[in-house]
Design a protein around this nucleic acid. Sequence first.
RNA 1: GCGGGUGUAGCUCAGUUGGUUAGAGCGUCUGGUUGUGGUUCAGAAGGUCGCCGGUUCAAUUCCGGUCACUCGCCCCA
Length: 430
Amino acid sequence: MAKVKVQNYKGTRDFYPEDKRLQKYVFNIWRSVCERYGYEEVDAPMLEPLELYQMKNGANPDMIKDELYALTDKSGRDLVVRPEMTPTVSRMVAARRQELQYPARWYSIPNLWRYERPQKGRLREHWQLNVDIFGQDGLQAVFELLQIANDIVVGLGAETGMYTIRINSRKLVNKLCELLRLCEPEASALMQLIDKKAKMPIEEYDQKFNELVDGDAAMKSLINEFLAATSYDELPEELRNTDEAAELRQLLDSCSDNMMESVVYDPLIMRGFDYYTGFVFEVFNEDLENNRAMLGGGEYDGLVGAMGAEPLPTAGFGMGDVTAIDFMQSQGTLPELWNETDIYFVVLEGSLEAAQAAIRKLRQGPRINVAVDSTYRKLSKCLESADKRKIRYALICGENEVKSGQYQLKDLKTGETFTMDLDKIAQALR
RNA sequence: GCGGGUGUAGCUCAGUUGGUUAGAGCGUCUGGUUGUGGUUCAGAAGGUCGCCGGUUCAAUUCCGGUCACUCGCCCCA
């Protein structure tokens, strides 16, 4: 028989206990922060009909062609393994448009798939926190999302200076294009150029920029002034007096009034060319070795309406588990993670039967997680094994303990040993 | 889709200017007399040197191809 490859599929991860422990740690932070803001968890099938991703306001066609896991079922239906959650939650809202309570606050932690060459921070399968709010006006919705995003990053151990939350307004950019009298091909080209500015060499940017403005000095200086702004006050005067700028100012003020000192205005944030309609934002890891966006989102008002339901204002963001873990690693904020098992119960030879009552008592009364070692190896080997599994406590049970009811509980972190009865042990572990 | 890097023990990697039994550290297992580890000592297991082909008396080493992994570009939900 041919040997089966034991290696996992390209761009995916096997989660061994220590890996899953880390992922669960991240998920727990995500869940607890979302639920603190009244968000409810939802989920959906991993397979969706291809049409969901072919809508007008959806992702661009090249992406659909090249970067999806697509398949055909036995009845000839075209299916896709979900590459993102936003169309799915929009579909779910559209399906119950009339009966849901608004604002609807939802979050989910789906695994998502994209067919591309893996690289650092981007794999073929990852888990992504999605936080969405439906039916709330943009400004309030986005402010709430920014608070959640901030709390999550802080929950991951971030301190001021380790990250920035950068926000921009697509409406303000549209206003700029309007002032410049840019029509569709040029407006898109400008946005695309802004989006890529940080990534391309300055000479290349200058060349493309000059092509675009075509010698129009007034246009050039207006765009440059816009791009150089780091606050509302630095915006070009023509823009500063618009409703769009006022809304931006209000959002920035709300953030600074609420101690969110990592929020900054950044006119370069565009979030690609998908469905975003209003405010957009990204959280950046400011570690110089790993300076990249690790969370992104914004307002996407068109999607629910695009499914034939009555439109409603919508905003949301996503954050991947890979980038979240990379962030903690690059910033050194990972805590020591202990095994879910509380006690490694080491039974010495000859005492197994007598020990069962004690094991049962720990599990059933105080619900302590107990793993039994009845291998009868040398005691030192048993302790070592518990330590390697990252179990915090070992309990030793031999003849003496069974007789006296006094057990030895060893803290494998400190090496200290305590002698106590089972009730005291249960109490100590609370 | 495009480009760079790397494939030798479970892991991290040495090494062979082509030559007979291929190495280290870590990890794993056993033991240092029978109930307290993570320090130490001794020992053991574990490798068709990614795969296929070419050159050669001889290839893990040179050449070609291929696959895999990895980093970057494109793209980014």
